[in-house]
Design a protein around this nucleic acid. Structure first.
Lengths: 158, 158
DNA sequence: CGGGAATTGTAAGTCTTGCTAACAAATAGG
DNA sequence: CCTATTTGTTAGCAAGACTTACAATTCCCG
């Protein structure tokens, strides 16, 4: 019942000459990106209610696991976040004892991030949940289409 | 400098056997959707700093213009929001005198939404800004690819 | 070598979005 | 007529993104 789509809410009165301006909102690429992202986020959140993790938090765990000792700034760049936002996320993960900050030896300004055992365990569960989530998203596409979609999206975020 | 991408932040130590679990994070479709959305949102926000409007606000103005007298619930369905979130957005737009609420004649529970003159004017400016924003997004694609991408994304949000 | 510039992390505060829970008013349906 | 549903509303909470400011560290040029 969340998807009756266009039950033309109202008598959709004469747009006069209307629509001539820029086209319908459904032709706006950005509009579809936002809706698709919203749908993804909703499903992700459902999938992760038990684990109590957000997309960003999982991404951070994942990257810290892939790059032990990574600095907050590097994380921020990879996930396109600013330092302040990164702080907030790291703080939450640290509060849950999923990772720790070690002052870097080589550069006293940097914090080297490492997963704690609890973080390793949680990431394992998270990757499994991501598998389910991905299956849900990909169920609409052929393997070829998935590759294509990733290629197209990559051009947007570089 | 926001896009140096993979300046391998850290010595990317041996992942042991690693990567065998579920694949690299870059192969996760949801990950690319989030990054693409983030990039879009950032550019949108820049484009709209002068107008001081968010994506959601523009979408609402647009839909109210397309469907004068639309109810908040209908708006919520079309933009996949809940009632409470819709309230907050409508409140902000009403505070700026971009639209008004009229109690519906036919159904006393519903609020019929209409653009105020200031809203019509703002929407006109917004559509122009969206044109620029869309041009930025679409500059990476051929017309054919844009159509394809919209089709693929539509399958996700239905 | 010294000192200003840049980098990195941190803290505090704001705004938007998204959610839940609870409640009131209106309508729908038996 | 009475109950269930729909719709709007309010209040409160959390996450994310952003700004500004500040301290510590490192870089680099003169």
């Amino acid at each position: 019942m969340i998807k009756d789509k266009f039950a033309d809410a109202v008598a959709t009165p004469p747009p006069a000459d209307g629509e001539a301006d820029i086209g319908a909102i459904n032709e706006i690429l950005g509009f579809h990106i936002r809706l698709a992202h919203g749908a993804c986020l909703r499903h992700f959140t459902e999938t992760f209610t038990d684990l109590d993790l957000t997309q960003k938090q999982v991404s951070v765990l994942w990257l810290v696991d892939d790059h032990p000792g990574i600095a907050q700034t590097d994380l921020a760049q990879r996930l396109r976040m600013d330092r302040a936002t990164t702080m907030a996320i790291i703080n939450r993960l640290q509060a849950k004892h999923f990772l720790r900050r070690d002052r870097s030896d080589k550069d006293g300004r940097k914090q080297a991030l490492f997963l704690e055992p609890a973080g390793v365990a949680m990431l394992a569960r998270a990757k499994q949940a991501i598998g389910e989530h991905e299956a849900w998203v990909k169920s609409r596409f052929s393997d070829k289409e998935v590759k294509l979609l990733i290629d197209l999206l990559s051009r947007i975020h570089e």
